[in-house]
Design a protein around this nucleic acid. Structure first.
Lengths: 320, 320
DNA sequence: TTGTAAGCGTTATCAA
DNA sequence: TTGATAACGCTTACAA
């Protein structure tokens, strides 16, 4: 592998000059620039990233704290991130936490000890204080609605999305509405919960603790929900479900048990995953790919802290 | 950030000694070792990976050529790889190709120019010759059945899996069997095709070009298959489908169109994805997580070229 | 068993 | 507009 010295020798200039053309710095005559470019071509020169990183004190590595990669919500997010990272010539370091706060802390420590240039937290497990304590070591961006002076935030209007979803169900005549959520804690989950409560309040509708199903992530969880639903004395007539995977599980299980959708039980999903279309599920589409890209650009724009929100769109199909 | 020099000074030893304890080298007295460990603790010392990489001439980066990450087959594979990479203290560089041979070539060039230490090709798009030409630059491992002196191979017995799947369908009384596949080219696809043809031959059964559906990856593709199936004059009575996603699409579309499964059309999927259980699809389970891990260990064991094959298991449910 | 010092391939400071 | 040269933090002959 040819190095910068070889190029300099071949082009009859100093390494500094080579470095200058490499980095597009001024003060290089066209003549020399061309000589350098020729030399690089001839010697098949490629920069040694490690040397650059060492010299600059940067890693070009971006940590990504993510609970799982095999869930559509997160894999879409990851897709967006990886695309943008490639574009910006950074590589992503995957830190799968499974919502383990300790794993997440390890990622924060990586930032502290300069193992990575920045950290993206797709879903947070530690308290806000803990995370904020690490901002002095590098840019942190979270995927939740937080206005903070020190950590950037890229999120979706979960409150509004839930509110609109609820309105849609109410318009269709429902009053007794339950909902399914991944976990009870977490900013996004709480905003959704808030949206749920607030909407019910506007129509002075009933609210039952047992209509709220948590730990809903997968198709299997959807099946479990139907099981729990059937054992209820007072059943909701509609379900707002924060994942199409879960909604799919619910719909398929309803079919098995002869529960008519939407007549007996209406279902509104989230994400607009292909499975939703296949099962004719109404759903709320989220721009996860875009969010993923923005997370990366925000992390890379380390100087400013950025606050961004994305919208959503309701997709009406046959399950409501 | 404390560096190795600081540690050496604090512990009253030379940097070499620190480096020795860091790397578990012999010839360090317990006394000094402890002093160094104390110093590292006290100063919150962390190694600078870039310096190590530069010094050793290694990147600790492993390229992963993968068509998509948002398909269960590949996301399971990726999960296994990322787990093992973490374990071995390497990071994965994702190169999503969407089966674009040029993108894959870029990855091979990264290997040539030492941007990565090794390359894993989860699904190959370039010709074998092209890939083999790059082995001199670093270890390459492919996820397909190839015995080669220079590139490692980790694969699943696709031929046997297909053969066994076919036997299962035949035992259930089927003679007219079609199949769905992602793409026609590719070693794995051809092995499957071979298994299909060979089994049909053993029972002297019919074989129809129009019973073979290619470009099948997603739920949508499954729906498309059912459409094509219905327009057939002479219809197969069973379908061997190389992805549970596609099988799910088929089954759901059959339901919409009142095609009885398995009476009218039997379906056997691949992967044993959760969706298969939910839809009561018989399927063939592949140890993708294990394969992913092995891909990484093989890539890291750069000295030897390794040839490994994994089995599979038939899971009987209600769709056959 | 320990330490000195020469790389590894860049960038950046300073002087020319 | 150019070029020496000193970092960057670590590993590894080689010497002691």
């Amino acid at each position: 592998m040819a190095n910068i010295k070889d190029v300099a020798r071949y082009a009859n200039v100093s390494v500094t000059t080579v470095s200058r053309v490499l980095n597009g710095h001024p003060y290089v005559t066209n003549e020399k620039r061309e000589a350098v470019e020729e030399a690089m071509e001839a010697l098949h020169y490629r920069q040694n990233m490690n040397a650059i990183h060492l010299s600059k004190g940067k890693t070009r590595l971006l940590g990504v704290v993510i609970p799982f990669v095999d869930h559509p919500y997160f894999s879409l997010l990851l897709n967006g991130m990886s695309k943008e990272a490639l574009h910006q010539e950074h590589t992503l370091v995957l830190i799968q936490t499974n919502y383990d706060a300790m794993k997440e802390l390890e990622a924060l420590e990586m930032l502290k000890y300069k193992q990575i240039d920045g950290l993206i937290i797709a879903s947070r497990s530690n308290t806000w204080d803990v995370v904020e304590g690490y901002t002095e070591f590098g840019p942190i961006v979270v995927c939740e609605d937080r206005s903070s002076d020190v950590v950037s935030s890229v999120s979706i209007r979960h409150y509004d999305a839930f509110y609109e979803g609820m309105q849609h169900l109410i318009e269709k005549g429902h009053q007794k509405i339950g909902f399914c959520i991944a976990r009870k804690t977490g900013t996004n989950s709480q905003l959704r919960y808030q949206g749920y409560r607030d909407t019910l309040h506007t129509i002075q509708a009933d609210y039952k603790e047992e209509w709220i199903f948590s730990n809903c992530l997968s198709i299997e969880d959807g099946e479990r929900v139907v099981d729990a639903y059937q054992s209820l004395d007072d059943k909701p007539t509609a379900l707002l479900v924060t994942s199409d995977q879960v909604a799919a599980g619910i719909r398929m299980e309803c079919q098995k048990r002869n529960i008519a959708v939407p007549e007996e039980l209406a279902i509104l999903g989230f994400d607009n995953h292909p499975i939703a279309r296949a099962l004719d599920l109404s759903t709320i589409e989220l721009p996860l790919h875009e969010v993923g890209r923005k997370l990366v650009t925000s992390a890379l724009d380390g100087n400013r802290t950025i606050y961004t929100q994305y919208g959503f769109s309701l997709i009406e199909r046959g399950s409501v």
